[in-house]
Design a protein around this nucleic acid. Structure first.
Length: 259
DNA sequence: ATGGTAGCGGTGCTA
């Protein structure tokens, strides 16, 4: 079971590029972020024609997550619990019915800039809500995959120029500590354990020639429960997508599970 | 210290 995550930064702008990449990468499951469309306006047709079931949790202009799967999906669940006043569309879960069922979440963790400030407070509170939700799901002892745009640079080696990010919400000590509190529940960073070579990133800013200089950061992650980590075969980043026409600022990151 | 680019939607916000 190949499970990819891809922050597409607008489903309309990325519709054709997404189809091109689906054709060559052939993932079983794709978790999307920043679709930026209400569910009724999501262009499902081309993806359904390729055999993908489309499950959405979107809103107008901002945020928006989705799960596309060519394996059956069960028990779809939207919203991150813990704050009834949170209207952001940043969380969708579904169980993928492979040879083994895998509970997959597509998540879009708040950016949090500028920090300090209310947006940063929201980010940290959201991460604590995520920790609580992960803790509940871990009690099932089923394979779990939490993938998406975490807006977290976990370690200095995950940035080409870590000094540039010292005061940024993606790299502040409190952000990294909150991420660590989640992983310390017993989750594995799939890409980290499969790829030890430095200089591998999932995001390059549109500005200042970040792509041309390979001034990137690794912020799109798959975190696996122990039962999922036991099934991990491989992980990778489809970096070539960033060099094409009208790219997203993120590229697809994928894992292969024996499931 | 500033401004640089992109998407959505039709202005300014978000990133």
């Amino acid at each position: 079971m190949k499970i990819a995550t891809f922050n597409i930064n607008g489903i309309l702008a990325r519709h054709d590029a997404l189809l091109t990449w689906l054709d060559e990468a052939a993932p079983d499951v794709v978790c999307l972020q920043e679709t930026k469309k209400i569910d009724a306006e999501f262009p499902r047709d081309a993806f359904e024609r390729l055999g993908y079931t489309v499950e959405l949790h979107g809103m107008k202009s901002f945020n928006g997550v989705a799960i596309l799967s060519r394996l059956p999906l069960e028990d779809v669940s939207r919203r991150l619990p813990g704050d009834d006043g949170d209207e952001h569309t940043r969380w969708i879960e579904a169980t993928v019915m492979g040879r083994r069922p895998v509970r997959v979440t597509s998540l879009y963790l708040p950016n949090g800039n500028p920090a300090p400030g209310p947006k940063y407070d929201f980010k940290l509170a959201w991460m604590e809500r995520m920790r609580a939700r992960v803790s509940v799901l871990l009690e099932t002892e089923e394979p779990l995959v939490f993938c998406g745009d975490y807006n977290i640079i976990p370690q200095p080696e995950d940035a080409a120029n870590p000094k540039d990010w010292l005061t940024d919400a993606l790299f502040l000590p409190a952000s990294r500590a909150a991420f660590q509190r989640i992983t310390n529940l017993g989750l594995t960073d799939a890409f980290r354990v499969r790829n030890r070579s430095p200089g591998q990133y999932s995001y390059w800013d549109f500005q200042r020639g970040a792509w041309e200089r390979n001034n990137g950061i690794r912020i799109d992650h798959h975190l696996l429960s122990a039962q999922a980590a036991d099934l991990l075969i491989d992980a990778g980043i489809d970096k070539q997508v960033r060099g094409r026409e009208k790219p997203s600022d993120h590229v697809p990151v994928w894992i292969e599970l024996d499931a």
